[in-house]
Structures are given as C-alpha cells and as structure tokens.
C-alpha cells in the first residue's frame, strides 16, 4: 500500500475485504468516472478556483475595495487598475474579489438552507400522504403563489435590510420547488417493493424516509440546485439593487452590475466584469451539477 500502484489495486479490487475498503473503492471509482467528463472537471476546477480566489481576496486585491478616487471615475483597464474603476473610482478587480465572498457566500448559505428544508417537506408529504401531504402542500402553494422577488422584498422590508435577511428571504422563497420535486419523487418510490421490504423489517417511518427515500430524491435535487444557483445570484442582485440586500459599500456582484447599469453603452466594461463573473460562476455550478448527477447514479456505471 506504500506505492501509488498498490494503493490503486487496493482501491479497485473486485473483492474488498472490509466496509472501509469498499467505501473508499467506491469513492475512487466515482472520482474516476467524474474525471472522464471534461466539462464536469472544468466546472469543478472553476468552482474551486473561484472559491480560492475569494478566500484569498486580501492577498490578491491590489486596492482597498472601498477606497474611492473620484478624480479617476470609470477608468478603462490599465496597469494601475487591471479591470478599470467604477463610478466612484473604486478598483473593479479588488471589488470583484471581495464581492465574490459576499455573492458566493450568499448562494452557498441559501442552498444549505433550502435543499434540506425542501427535501424534508417534500419527502414527509409524499411518504405519509393524507393530511400531512395536504397541509404541507397547501403551505407550499401559499409560498409559490407569490412572485419570488416580491415575497423576498416584503420579507426583507419587514426585518432589517442586510445580507443575513437577504439570505433568509431568498431561502424562504426558494424552497417550494424543491419540496414539490422531492414529493413527486417520493410518491413514485413509496409504493415500490424495496420500500415495502424495508417497512417489513419494522423500521420506523422516519428511518425509511431518511435512509431509503431521500437517497432516491437527491439526484434530481442536485441538478435542480445547480441550475438554481444562477437565479439565486440574480435574486440576491435584485435585492441589492433595491437596497434590500448587501448594503453599500460592501461589494456584491449583483449590486455592482445594478449600479453600473447606467454606463453600459459608454463605459461598458464596468457592468460587464461582474456580469462575466456571475456567468462564469453559474456555468461552472451547472457543469459541476451535471457531472455529479451522471456520476451519482450507480445504474449508469
């Protein structure tokens, strides 16, 4: 097991001798499959790169993201300001790095809140059916009935504007589609023989939902989440634009576009740079999600 070749043999053996070996072998195979998909690898590399760039922002930034130089407004990219300056003369490159922290942090926080909540609501409604289903789905309908942005706006306006409340507001409006999706998947799974077999072991309904039903729903959920990443970024941006999200002077990609929108015909690079950042981040998340979905379905192997 000391050499890479021996390690590889240990990982890919057809007859693992322990659970630990089987689990690591499975992970290694997943990684091998994932590696074969160049688009997914591109997505993963980009996501990792973006996260590293944002975490290392203080080291990489050339200027203070809040430092204004009103004599040097809307400058074109140069050696001094690599991506130009915005309408208050702040360095766009530095703001982009710091803004990624806010934007990606918001996206990650929203997803971490929304995916488990939607999954839980949908699986419980779908598995138990009857009254639980009706109550939970009507609640879901209530949230679905409002336009997403307006509900988020009302929520943020009711509490204090800021990043935390923006995250809560977006989470509040983003979970219903996940619940619907998880419920639909659960309904197709709950009457299968393999769930009947688990019921016959005497397992509690909670154990069945957690250990046997949710794994069947996560695949479509992952795809949905990665596709939603871009719209979460955009909702965050809209909230920021309306003064309900990230508060100035803290940089955020969506807010950066919103404030630089006026100059799109004259100094086009100012709104274009954060737009490209959002585009690249969304695309990377989508490609990563697509790759993950292909790999996570054991039947495709």
């Amino acid at each position: 097991m000391s050499t890479p070749a021996a390690l590889r043999d240990w990982l890919i053996t057809e007859t693992p001798s322990s659970r630990r070996q089987a689990a690591w072998g499975r992970r290694y195979r997943l990684w091998c499959d994932f590696r074969r998909n160049p688009l997914a690898i591109g997505g993963l590399a980009t996501v990792v790169l973006l996260i590293v760039l944002c975490l290392a922002a203080p080291l990489l930034a050339t200027h203070d993201p809040g430092q204004q130089t009103l004599t040097n407004r809307l400058a074109a990219p140069s050696a001094e300001h690599w991506l130009g300056t915005d309408e208050l003369g702040r360095d766009v490159y530095s703001r982009l790095l710091y803004g990624g922290r806010v934007t990606l942090g918001m996206v990650v926080a929203v997803v971490l809140l929304v995916a488990p909540l939607g999954l839980a609501v949908g699986c419980i409604a779908g598995y138990f059916g009857g009254l639980a289903d009706r109550v939970l789905m009507r609640v879901t309908d209530v949230f679905l009935a409002f336009p997403r942005l307006i509900l988020a706006l009302a929520f943020v306006a009711a509490i204090k504007p800021g990043i935390t409340s923006a995250i809560a507001a977006i989470a509040l409006t983003a979970w219903p589609p996940y619940a619907r999706l998880a419920r639909a998947e659960t309904m197709t799974v709950r009457n299968t023989d393999y769930i009947a077999a688990v019921r016959l072991t005497g397992a509690s309904p909670w154990r069945i939902i957690l250990r046997h039903v949710t794994p069947m729903c996560t695949q479509s959920l992952i795809v949905r989440v990665t596709l939603d990443m871009s719209s979460i970024i955009l909702t965050a941006a809209s909230l920021g634009f309306l003064g309900m999200g990230a508060q100035p002077p803290s940089p955020e990609w969506g807010t950066m576009i919103a404030t630089a929108r006026r100059f799109i015909l004259t100094e086009w690079w100012v709104p274009l740079v954060p737009a490209i950042a959002i585009f690249v981040a969304s695309l990377a998340f989508n490609l990563l999600g697509d790759g993950l979905r292909d790999v996570l379905d054991p039947k495709q192997r």
Binding site: D193, A197, G202, H212, M216
Partner: peptide, 26 residues
C-alpha cells in the same frame, strides 16, 4: 417476506451489504 420481482425488491442505491445490515440495525 420475499417478493416476486427481485429487480424491484432491492434498493437500487444500496449495496448488498447495506441491504443485509438494515434488518440487523433496525
């Protein structure tokens, strides 16, 4: 109980090991 369709009565996402250990854990 043993079911009719062995293609449908085993969880597609669980290894044989998981399927067999589930009754023991329960």
């Amino acid at each position: 109980m043993v079911f009719q369709d062995p293609y449908g009565s085993l969880h597609p996402r669980q290894t044989v090991d998981r399927a067999l250990s589930e009754p023991l854990e329960v």
